[in-house]
């Protein structure tokens, strides 16, 4: 999964910092498409931008376990339960790959987790929507992970080595996520009229929030230009959104569902699908904490962290005692 939160306001814009003293070899490496590695000199603003983006990406993976985790105990078959368990475990794994990549920039895991829990760091707005039916699990795999893949594949070529390598691993695993979702929906569409209606209802609810995952329109994007220049971002929000819509419309037709947009139609002149206006008011409301599940998600993360404190402490003390015993 993925965050659109890279372009959010409320964090320091990086453009002003571009004027700082040049770092030896940095611009040359970017120009030659040579990866920047942790020990290389890099502008402070580049480091900060990456820490923000990678940590918020990691937070999104971790919070993203909650909406799907909601259905693990209620999966309709053992097969679907095993698949969903594996998928949610992957999301946790992706969060860990990304936290580790961010740590190479000199930020501690504790600091990142604290920023998530005190609300100063963002995570993807998509996870503030509820999972109301089993069809949501299929739609999340198909559309949410589909959008994530569209966003993430270019990040495999990101200029920062550890982030690029983490993203290669993430992308390898995302294909399973999207396919299991679509496979689940195909099975439901072969079922009863009620099951087909459940799929359509889930698609109706998720479609617009999924389009918002790509972030604000290019002209409203805060960090877009600098991130492009630094090779962190390779395509603009609107380009990625269009790519996703073009790929998804035929998949909806094969599945037999209607995407809830009367303005959605093929534009032969552009060679793309046109689609209707996105309700950005809804997007900003969710980003600001007023989405359907913002408070519930944060409360669940804080509770998990606090309930786990004694486990972390006990494991640490046990390891220290073991080391002390071996020393004798």
């Amino acid at each position: 999964m993925y965050t659109q939160a890279l372009d959010l306001p409320g964090v320091q814009a990086t453009d002003s910092a571009v004027t700082e003293a040049p770092c030896v070899g940095f611009d040359e490496k970017l120009a030659a498409d040579i990866k920047i590695e942790p020990s290389d000199p890099m502008p402070d603003a580049y480091r900060k931008t990456l820490i923000r983006q990678i940590s918020q990406h990691a937070h999104s993976e971790i919070v993203g376990m909650l909406p799907e985790g909601n259905w693990i105990t209620r999966a309709p078959t053992l097969k679907r339960k095993a698949i969903l368990l594996a998928k949610v475990q992957d999301e946790g794994g992706h969060g860990l790959y990304l936290y580790a990549a961010a740590e190479t920039l000199g930020v501690s895991r504790d600091t990142m987790v604290a920023a998530l829990l005190d609300g100063s760091a963002k995570y993807s707005s998509i996870f503030n929507y509820p999972t109301l039916s089993w069809a949501d699990i299929g739609v999340i795999g198909w559309l949410v992970d589909g959008a994530a893949i569209t966003n993430q594949v270019p990040l495999c070529r990101c200029s920062y080595g550890p982030y690029a390598r983490a993203m290669v691993r993430v992308c390898k695993e995302e294909s399973f996520h999207q396919r299991q979702g679509y496979d689940l929906l195909v099975a439901m569409m072969k079922g009863s009229a009620a099951q087909r209606a459940m799929v359509q209802e889930a698609v109706d609810r998720w479609w617009w929030p999924v389009l918002m995952m790509f972030g604000p329109h290019d002209q409203d994007s805060v960090h877009g230009a600098t991130s492009m220049k630094w090779g962190i971002k390779r395509f603009s929000n609107d380009d990625l959104r269009q790519k996703f819509v073009d790929a998804t419309v035929p998949q909806a037709e094969v599945l037999g569902v209607t995407l809830p947009d009367p303005d959605l139609k093929w534009n032969a002149e552009r060679g793309h699908y046109d689609f209707g206006a996105i309700d950005w008011n809804e997007f900003w409301q969710v980003v600001k904490g007023n989405g359907p599940c913002n408070r519930e998600r944060m409360a669940a993360r804080i509770k998990a962290h606090e309930d786990g404190a004694w486990v972390r402490e006990a494991a640490r003390v046990h390891a220290e005692k073991k080391t002390a015993r071996q020393a004798h």
Binding site: K79, A82, I83, A86, D90, G146, E173, S175, F176, Q178, R179, Q180, Y182, D183, V186, P250, Q251, V254
Partner: peptide
């Protein structure tokens, strides 16, 4: 745990390159 692999899922031919 072969269900962890993308090849475990055979989708309709028109979208199987997903």
């Amino acid at each position: 745990k072969t269900y962890r692999l993308p090849t475990f899922y055979q989708l309709p031919a028109a979208v199987n390159n997903m």
